[in-house]
């Protein structure tokens, strides 16, 4: 019997009278990629912001189980929570500029994550940063360049490197290819997919692009008006949707 890495029970969050998300329950197992789809305002972002510690939900339970250690995410002290977020979670923003320091070199950006978990040896930080710059297919001669000199696709790859270097246990991605040119989307998607496979990453990815979900996610949930209306294996939900809204969503995809 495998224990879920993340178990969410009846999670709710509203903004005054407006429902963000309501009674969300789900679980995620090690090595799984979970896709969250839904139209704008359906509560996708509220949900991952609650799960990643950026937002405080009103009700519900979030339990992480990492290396047989259970963390009751909403009932730990602020310092424990921040430490947990720092070491066990990662967040890849849609806009890489939100996840990077633009006045700090590429290497410094990647290295910061290491320094924040206690690395104090410049040589080690440098060599790990170089390794990861290579891994995300950025030329290592660019390690000391400022991110403002990078293209959109490179910035996103840099942000991915920054997030993965400390081997976090759960990675949240909010529309990771949303702001990219179509021509670079495929490469970034492929990068994410190969890293997910190679490192056996556990990922929660929000996207309104069903093709992205089909390519990356093992499981998916469909959200509408703050609630989960359908969930299951991605190919099952996409090929044999059981809800009216999901059918509409799937049939709305443009096939050119």
């Amino acid at each position: 019997m495998i224990i879920p890495l993340l178990k969410v029970t009846n999670l709710s969050k509203s903004y005054d009278n407006i429902v963000g998300c309501k009674n969300i329950s789900m679980s995620l197992y090690p090595g799984e990629v979970l896709g969250i789809v839904g139209e704008s305002g359906s509560g996708k972002t509220t949900l991952i912001n609650c799960l990643s510690g950026n937002l405080e939900p009103d009700r519900g339970k979030i339990i992480f189980n990492i290396n047989n250690k259970e963390t009751d995410f909403l009932n730990i002290s602020e310092s424990e929570k921040r430490k947990f977020i720092r070491t066990d979670l990662a967040f890849v923003h849609q806009n890489p500029r939100d996840g990077l320091r633009l006045n700090v070199s590429a290497g410094g950006n990647i290295g910061e994550k290491l320094m924040s978990v206690g690395y104090r040896h410049y040589g080690n930080i440098r060599s790990l940063a170089t390794k990861w710059i290579n891994k995300v297919e950025i030329d290592k001669s660019r390690i000391d360049d400022l991110p403002i000199t990078f293209s959109g696709g490179m910035l996103q790859r840099l942000q991915i490197a920054k997030n993965l270097i400390t081997s976090p246990n759960v990675i949240f991605m909010d529309e990771p290819t949303g702001g990219l040119d179509v021509s670079v989307q495929a490469r970034v998607l492929d990068l994410i997919r190969s890293l997910v496979n190679e490192l056996n990453l556990t990922v929660i990815i929000v996207s309104h692009d069903l093709a992205v979900i089909r390519l990356l996610a093992d499981k998916m949930i469909v959200m509408k008006n703050g609630t989960v209306i359908e969930s299951g294996l991605s190919d099952q939900v996409l090929e044999d949707p059981q809800q009216e809204y999901t059918q509409l969503l799937v049939s709305s995809v443009l096939h050119v």
């Binding site: 320094m115 924040s116 104090r120 390690i143």
Partner: peptide
């Protein structure tokens, strides 16, 4: 942790 970023940038 992030305090060392400035020193890192100096050395690099």
């Amino acid at each position: 942790g992030a305090m060392h970023v400035k020193l890192y940038e100096d050395i690099s």
